[in-house]
Design a protein around this nucleic acid. Structure first.
Lengths: 222, 222
DNA sequence: TTGAATGTGTAACAATTGTGACATATTTAT
DNA sequence: ATAAATATGTCACAATTGTTACACATTCAA
């Protein structure tokens, strides 16, 4: 059996190394691998365990009733997928999950998770915190969607993703994905982006963005 | 000290009655009361404990960066307020909380919650489930916001809230609140509503809604 | 009961966004 | 290297929504 390194996984990192190994020895779980661009979980499927992304990255997206897709997020290993839903009353996945590269996923049954939480309080604590952080993420997502103008969304997004004043930073989404993330039409996003560029507020080079005028960008939120 | 009935609270209901009493005897907590229309929690405030709404009802809303408000939900006692945020890394309330009537709130410190979870696995389990359900709620909210047309939002909302085919049901929000909930302008909502009424798809009498044409309503989602 | 406050209906017009189409650029796979 | 696939820029026009304003209805409180 392969050694699996979970030290950089937020819900397992607090475990002592030797604990981690006994943990994994005792643990009942299964591992599956998937190829690139596979749809591995469909929105609405029953979620009867914890799906831990061990290797690779996936994207999650929500299919709206009108058939549009709303991009939710990109998840890189090692992180659990939709961990909250194991315990919800209606335990169905709220999103489609598609691989972005070759992916390895470990599935741990719900009762095993329960046992882990009871026997290992560090695990319980980090599991709680991780789920809490996910809630916060969703809240932020809600906030972004509640901004009505496209320029406002762009401003919110760029200000959130920029590091230090004036320095370039990378956005690992193309325009189509950004448009999905914002829930707007792609040409509309392109138009708004090019207007902000023409106004000298930001500079875009491929996926590298630079904020040239913070004040101007912040004013787009109003 | 008053006896407090938590049997209808989702995170406490599974506790045995006698457990509940010893639980509350040992528990460190404080109770505060508030009047109607008080702003009791401000978006961004530190959340250093579990706030349990014991009596009354409150509304939560998010203040967007552009100054608009987005109505999130109405919470009726007994239910915890933003329980997930106690454990998040950035433990700040994501919303404003305003009382809708006279309200009583019990605050339990974070470490007490931790102790409860460790000593009482039923509590832990229901706390997990409740938080999971909240995540699902937020996901639904996200789904509603991701529908682009106002008629689509109305359709989604009414289909979700209707009980059995053709029977009237009550929506406990006025138009202004509904508009906030949908994140749209009030007159725009009124216009869309009246169009749907004129098309004979629904009937509105005060806050009582009746769906007259399910097929037609569903088509608005497309 | 009566005035005040709040909620609803509606209109003209402005602003923003979506649509569909196309050319061009860039990336990817063979 | 080259064709195919994907991504981007841009346009004219349609559709939807927001804005502001005001009349009228309803509810609430003194």
């Amino acid at each position: 059996m392969n050694k699996i390194d979970l030290t950089s996984c937020p819900i397992c990192s607090k475990l002592q190394i030797d604990n981690q190994e006994t943990l994994l020895d005792d643990l009942k779980y299964s591992v599956k691998t998937y190829k690139k661009n596979e749809l591995i979980i469909r929105q609405g499927e029953i979620c009867d365990g914890l799906y831990m992304l061990m290797l690779g990255s996936v994207k999650t997206e929500m299919i709206t009733e009108n058939g549009n897709t709303l991009g939710i997020e990109i998840i890189k290993a090692p992180l659990p997928l939709a961990p909250a839903f194991v315990f919800s009353d209606n335990n169905r996945f709220p999103v489609d999950v598609t691989t972005l590269e070759e992916v390895e996923i470990m599935k741990i049954p719900k009762d095993e998770i329960m046992r882990l939480m009871i026997t290992n309080h560090d695990f319980m604590s980090s599991f709680m915190t991780h789920n809490a952080n996910r809630t916060q993420f969703l809240t932020n997502r809600l906030q972004l969607l509640s901004i009505k103008t496209i320029k406002g969304k762009i401003a919110h997004f760029l200000l959130e993703n920029s590091t230090s004043e004036g320095k370039p930073f990378n956005i690992n989404r193309n325009q189509t994905e950004l448009a999905e993330f914002f829930g707007v039409a792609r040409p509309s996003l392109a138009r708004s982006l090019s207007e902000i560029v023409q106004d000298g507020i930001i500079k875009i080079e491929k996926k590298e963005y630079t904020i040239l005028n913070y004040k101007g960008l912040r004013e787009l939120l109003i």
